[in-house]
Computed example of a mutant assay.
Amino acid sequence: MNKPLFMRIVDRLSNHVPYFQQKRDATGRFGLSSLQKCTAAIRMMAYGCAADAVDEYLRLGETTAILCLGKFVEGIINLFGDEYLRRPTPEDLQRLLDIGEIRGFPGMIGSIDCMHWEWKNCPTAWKGQYTRGSGKPTIVLEAVASQDLWIWHAFFGPPGTLNDINVLDRSPVFDDILEGRAPKVNYLVNGHEYHLAYYLTDGIYPKWATFIQSIAIPQGPKASLFALYQESVRKDVERAFGVLQSRFAIVKNPALIWDKVKI
Rank of each mutant, 00 (worst) to 15 (best):
M1A: 12
M1G: 11
P4R: 15
P4G: 08
L5T: 14
F6S: 04
M7Q: 07
R8I: 10
V17H: 13
V17M: 13
P18Q: 02
Y19T: 08
D25N: 14
G28N: 05
R29Y: 11
G31R: 00
T39L: 04
I42H: 03
I42K: 05
M45L: 15
Y47H: 14
D52C: 08
A53H: 11
V54P: 07
Y57K: 13
G61W: 02
T63A: 15
V73D: 06
E74G: 04
E74N: 09
I76P: 05
I77C: 11
I77D: 04
N78E: 14
N78C: 06
F80Q: 10
D82P: 06
E83W: 07
E83R: 14
L85C: 14
R87H: 11
T89C: 09
T89Y: 04
E91H: 14
E91V: 09
R95S: 13
E101Y: 07
I102G: 04
G107L: 10
M108T: 08
I109F: 07
I112D: 01
I112A: 05
C114V: 14
M115P: 02
M115W: 00
W119C: 07
N121P: 03
P123H: 03
A125I: 09
K127S: 07
P137Q: 09
T138Y: 15
L141N: 09
L141M: 08
L141R: 03
E142A: 00
A143I: 00
A143E: 08
V144P: 11
I151L: 08
H153K: 02
P159Q: 06
G160T: 05
T161G: 13
T161N: 03
N163E: 07
V167W: 00
L168M: 11
R170E: 13
P172V: 01
F174E: 06
D176R: 10
I177Y: 06
G180L: 02
R181E: 12
R181P: 01
A182S: 11
P183T: 08
K184T: 09
Y187K: 02
V189G: 04
Y194T: 00
P206A: 02
K207H: 15
K207S: 13
S214F: 01
S214H: 07
I215T: 02
P221Y: 04
S224A: 15
S224H: 08
L225K: 08
F226T: 11
F226C: 00
A227W: 05
L228V: 06
L228M: 01
Y229F: 10
S232W: 09
S232A: 11
S232I: 15
V233P: 01
R234M: 02
V237R: 03
V237K: 08
E238R: 06
R239N: 15
R239A: 15
A240P: 10
G242C: 14
Q245R: 13
S246E: 01
S246T: 04
F248A: 03
F248S: 00
I250A: 01
P254T: 01
L256S: 09
K260V: 09
K262M: 15
I263T: 12
